[in-house]
């Protein structure tokens, strides 16, 4: 399994389903949902967490601040030890 530096935590209610994160993901780890949220819009979901390396490009492209990267930062941990 690929080493993980944290994974995107996507707010279902904040997501407007523009799909920019899905398009920009270099590992193709994100997809649009089949279900809809309270706004009546499809939302982005992390369907392949194993592929995700926590690069954060999805966060950079999200116009609605709906994504955060949550998890341990491997780089920082190494620096501590």
């Amino acid at each position: 399994m690929a080493k993980q530096k944290g994974k995107p935590d996507i707010s279902i209610e904040r997501c407007k389903g523009c799909g920019l994160c899905v398009e920009v993901c270099p590992k193709k780890a994100l997809e649009m949902s089949e279900k809809i949220n309270d706004r009546g819009l499809k939302y982005a979901v992390l369907t392949a967490p194993d592929k995700c390396n926590g690069c954060g490009l999805c966060v950079i492209m999200c116009p609605d601040c709906a994504i955060e990267i949550v998890g341990e930062d491997e780089g920082k941990e190494k620096g501590k030890s």
Partner: peptide
């Protein structure tokens, strides 16, 4: 859990 790339402080938590 550590968070990175979070919402900036001066942006209100509002859609």
């Amino acid at each position: 859990m550590a968070k990175r790339f979070t919402r900036p402080e001066s942006m209100k938590d509002k859609a």
